[in-house]
Amino acid sequence: MNALDRPWVLIAEREVTTKLRDKTFVGSTVVMLLIVIAATILPAVLAGNSGPSKIGVVDESGAKVVQQASTTAGGKGYEVVRLADRSAATKAVTDGDVKAALLPGDDGYVVLGKDHVDSGIESALREAVASVGTAANAAKAGLTPAELHVGTKVQVDLLKPGPLPDVVSQFVNVGLALVFYMTALGFGMMIAQSVVQEKESRVVEILAAAVPIRSLLWGKVLGNTALALGQIVIIAGASLIGLLATDQAAILEVVAPVAGWFVVFFVLGFVALAGLWAVAGSLATRQEDLGSTTLPGQMILMIPFFFSVFAGSSAKTVASFVPIASSMSMPGRMLTEDVPVWQPLVAIALLLAATVLIVRMGARLYERTLLQTGRRLGYREALALERG
């Protein structure tokens, strides 16, 4: 069977090649790629080029504390700068020669800063002072530091542990929902605009004479789905580079198993929405009409997105089973919670059923409205045409 026997393949290839020759589409993809790489790699590069922070000290005990603090500075360490006295330390801090100075105080030490003290430096110095002071006091009492700390350890036991730390899990959850939202919205508008352009230029009449209208619809949906998946792969590749460059490869061990689920939810949700976006384009006769005809599609995307990001745990659980919303909610839940495997399977079954219904309804509306020119049609009118 050749491509002529499958006209939707020709339409899909036409969609892909047209978009790949579109400088705006290629440029936006490149910009997105650069943003993702910069957001993940640039902070690590800047941190790596800055070198260890310099801490001024005026005696040997202060130097010992700073050296101890270096072990808690995330591997970056601190550089000890020997200064003659407090006046020299004050001048070094004021001139910016050192980030801070550690000086003897009435009951321990004083951290001297210019207009503020970096929270990381302050935290590391506090921990180091406590460690060094405890060791000295233990020695005076004839005890080892381990003996002095017997019975003082606190262990955290989580009843419902998530696979990722809270901050990381929330970031990834929002990120997955945002990727689906932005991709579906961006490509959806391109589908609608493409349909209107073909109607305005009368190209659609030529295509409809040579190819079944449903093949036109399937070609657009499948072609843009392939492009959207390609863009997702690019984003994933850029994120992978960023994670490896910033030494966060451990996150991949958690994200990788969910990636396959995300692709399934993405494809089904995108296909359903792509059919609706094509209908939105077929209802319009000019580009100016898209503001009203695409509004339902925008709301179908926007409401579940904000719901999946800002709703409570119970509400997110419910949303993860609602078609379209599940494409944004369920993958995030699988990263942040211990979700039984039956739940994503049920959500996929519901989404698949909804996708089939939406696409079938969209195909019928598309057939009835694509060749309607002269004025914008409403959804109620289009449904009436279908019944007629």
Rank of each mutant, 00 (worst) to 15 (best):
112 L>N: 06
142 G>V: 07
116 H>N: 10
88 A>L: 05
45 V>I: 08
16 V>I: 14
324 I>M: 10
233 V>M: 10
257 P>A: 09
243 L>A: 13
279 V>A: 03
108 G>E: 10
256 A>R: 15
222 L>R: 00
357 L>F: 09
115 D>S: 14
379 Y>M: 08
229 L>W: 03
40 T>K: 08
142 G>H: 05
68 Q>R: 15
339 V>C: 12
320 S>C: 10
49 N>C: 12
60 E>L: 13
29 T>Y: 00
64 K>R: 11
366 Y>V: 04
87 S>V: 04
383 L>H: 08
288 E>Q: 07
235 I>E: 02
182 M>T: 04
269 G>Y: 03
296 P>N: 03
276 L>H: 00
78 Y>G: 06
80 V>F: 08
183 T>Q: 05
223 G>S: 06
378 G>C: 07
379 Y>E: 03
253 E>W: 15
103 L>K: 12
153 K>S: 14
257 P>D: 05
157 D>C: 00
351 L>S: 15
146 A>E: 13
196 V>G: 00
124 A>E: 02
382 A>P: 05
224 N>C: 00
22 D>I: 03
101 A>P: 09
190 M>H: 02
195 V>A: 01
26 V>R: 03
268 L>Q: 03
46 L>W: 04
28 S>W: 00
367 E>S: 11
10 L>V: 07
380 R>P: 11
238 A>F: 06
89 A>I: 10
320 S>V: 08
155 Q>R: 08
127 E>P: 12
243 L>M: 14
143 L>Y: 01
55 I>Q: 04
327 S>K: 09
286 R>E: 06
2 N>D: 11
325 A>S: 03
300 I>W: 09
68 Q>W: 11
120 G>V: 13
237 G>F: 00
257 P>G: 07
358 I>G: 04
195 V>R: 00
18 T>S: 03
167 V>K: 12
324 I>D: 02
388 G>N: 07
47 A>E: 12
156 V>T: 13
110 V>N: 15
245 A>V: 15
366 Y>D: 07
231 Q>P: 01
307 F>P: 13
380 R>L: 12
266 F>S: 09
119 S>A: 15
56 G>K: 08
301 L>E: 02
72 T>C: 04
340 P>H: 14
380 R>Y: 06
266 F>A: 04
255 V>I: 14
234 I>Y: 11
184 A>Q: 01
231 Q>R: 01
9 V>D: 04
197 Q>I: 01
228 A>M: 06
378 G>L: 05
257 P>L: 06
300 I>V: 15
225 T>F: 01
282 S>L: 02
81 V>G: 09
265 F>I: 14
61 S>E: 01
3 A>P: 02
230 G>Y: 02
112 L>E: 05
301 L>A: 07
10 L>W: 08
238 A>K: 04
34 L>I: 14
119 S>D: 15
154 V>R: 03
327 S>L: 10
39 A>Q: 05
328 M>T: 01
328 M>A: 02
346 V>D: 05
336 T>V: 06
259 A>K: 06
199 K>E: 02
388 G>E: 07
70 S>Q: 06
5 D>K: 12
126 R>V: 09
330 M>W: 09
6 R>D: 04
36 V>S: 05
64 K>T: 09
330 M>R: 12
80 V>A: 06
102 L>C: 08
